[in-house]
């Protein structure tokens, strides 16, 4: 029997998030011929985004319209999606493993009494079964899992599954008016955008990361400069966060975030096992450390033994030449 899958799209600053296109690709990889993939977009003033999304290989784009849904509220989102879930009866939901996805997916999974596989990095069809790969212990081990029953809920780790490509076709757009969110028990009073205009750590293609070697909060400045130049994000080791040099939101490791950028530049990071777990899936690792014995050099593709405060500005200078 043909299946119906639903992507819950995410948008930010008026743009579709890359991870939404990756979730779409994840659904496509889970699908057989004849299966239908739908997308849901929540918020107000989303006509342009809906048209953009409709160019991808989708059966239908559902716009759940309500200005109030432009800001995420778990209770409001679950409520707004419920009529669509009831009507569509999806066999699988796909979301990004993002601040929204990791919060919303389990709520929807519970609502549907569905199993969920979180933080999936690859999807393959093997002998009629869809097999989901997900790192556990922050990447110290890899498990492959299957669902034993429908419906499924899947969250995909950003930057791992290639984004779906626009097919040029125009999927139908269906608008649903969301009931105004009355008597919610959850109220999001305000959002302080500390990351405005910055690339999210889990989605960044380049990460410049600092450890205890950055010495203090100001020590992150040269790292930020390099990250900005490369269109990347700044990360940190637990040591740097515990020492108060930066916000915990930047922490990469088994506690903190797991990241898989194209290029990871570790500056003044020794390479403790708990940090390595969070970044060893990066495509290229560059280590900059004064200590030639630092364990980070054991897994780095390229290493520079030297003081990060000398090396990072030199690197920034060289990249600037190349990118000019």
């Amino acid at each position: 029997m043909s299946k119906t899958f639903l992507i819950v799209a995410e948008h930010r600053d008026g743009k579709l998030r890359q991870v939404t296109l990756e979730a779409l690709q994840a659904a496509a990889r889970s699908a057989q011929d004849g299966d239908a993939i739908h997308a849901a977009l929540l918020g107000g003033g989303l006509d342009a985004l809906a048209s953009e999304l409709a160019a991808y290989p989708l059966a239908k784009v559902h716009v759940i319209e309500n200005e109030g849904l432009n800001a995420y509220n778990p209770e409001a989102y679950v409520r707004a999606l419920t009529p669509l879930l009831d009507a569509l009866k999806p066999d699988g939901l796909f979301l990004g493993h993002t601040a929204i996805g990791r919060d919303l997916a389990p709520a929807l999974a519970a609502k549907l009494s569905a199993g969920q596989l979180s933080d999936v990095t690859a999807i393959d069809q093997e002998g009629g079964e869809v097999v989901f790969t997900r790192p556990i212990y922050a990447g110290k081990a890899i498990e492959k899992k299957t669902f034993l029953a429908y419906p499924w809920v899947v969250t995909v780790r950003p930057n791992n599954i290639p984004a779906a490509e626009a097919a040029g076709g125009g999927a139908a757009i269906e608008k649903h008016a969301a009931a105004p969110a009355a008597d919610l028990r959850t109220v999001v009073r305000d959002v302080v955008r500390k990351t405005s205009g910055k690339v999210d750590l889990t989605e960044a293609k380049v990460i410049v990361s600092g450890g205890r070697g950055v010495k203090n909060a100001d020590g992150f400045k040269p790292l930020e400069e390099l990250a900005d130049l490369l269109g990347g994000a700044v990360g940190a080791s637990r040591g740097a966060c515990d020492a108060g040099y930066c916000d915990y939101a930047l922490q990469i490791g088994q506690t903190g975030k797991v990241v898989t950028p194209e290029i990871y530049i570790a500056c003044g990071i020794s390479g403790a096992i708990q940090h390595v777990a969070g970044m060893s899936g990066s495509r290229i690792i560059i280590a900059i450390n004064k200590d030639p014995e630092a364990p980070i050099f054991q897994l780095a593709d390229y290493g520079i033994v030297g003081d990060l405060f000398e090396v990072v500005p030199l690197l920034t200078q060289e990249f600037r030449k190349v990118l000019a």
Binding site: P135, G139, A141, E143, K145, F147, G281, I285, A300
Partner: peptide, 15 residues
């Protein structure tokens, strides 16, 4: 609702 099919270690990185 889910089952593990296999478990492995990630490919180790070379210096």
């Amino acid at each position: 609702k889910t089952a593990r099919q296999s478990l492995s270690l990630p490919p180790s990185r070379q210096a």
